[in-house]
């Protein structure tokens, strides 16, 4: 009985704060993305000539995002049924947009006109044990030119 109460409390905390954090994060992502619209982004670049560019530098943005207790619990149930695990989709989207934004912001601060050859990758931090912290590192990198 005690265990059930603790579980319910943790789920409640996870749901309440997790949803709030996620909403805030999406709002801030949207604002920052609008502020940075002038920067041209491209995943091509390795074989594209850049005659207008004089200087280049590598920029990296990374973030570690973690799931909340509610998401982890729901994902465990969804995993049994199969199909889309929607709670993790939004988590990954947040991580990816945040990492990209951090890279773009540092490129813009340096004075880049565009960022070429952008690569995005993610790595799981908790190993494959399936226990403990559900955390994921997303990193984005690219070459800023001006």
């Amino acid at each position: 009985m005690d265990g059930l109460i603790i579980l319910a409390v943790l789920l409640g905390i996870g749901y309440f704060f997790g949803t709030r954090v996620e909403k805030q994060h999406f709002r801030s992502l949207q604002q920052r993305e609008q502020a940075i619209q002038g920067l041209m982004l491209s995943t091509a670049g390795a074989k594209v000539l850049l005659p207008q560019a004089h200087q280049a530098q590598l920029f990296v943005g990374s973030v570690v995002v973690s799931s909340d207790f509610f998401k982890t619990f729901i994902a465990g149930i969804m995993n049994l049924l199969g199909g889309r695990i929607t709670v993790y989709e939004s988590l990954l989207e947040r991580g990816r947009r945040e990492a990209l934004l951090r890279m773009e912001e540092s490129a813009q601060a340096w004075g880049a006109d565009q960022v070429v050859n952008i690569r995005i990758q993610a790595a799981e931090l908790s190993g494959n044990s399936g226990k403990g912290v559900v955390a994921l590192e997303v990193m984005a990198y690219g070459t800023g030119v001006r």
Binding site: F17, G18, V64, V133
Partner: peptide, 13 residues
Amino acid sequence: LKNIVGGELKGYT
């Protein structure tokens, strides 16, 4: 602890 409420883990970042 942060894993209960979710969000960015700044220490790990």
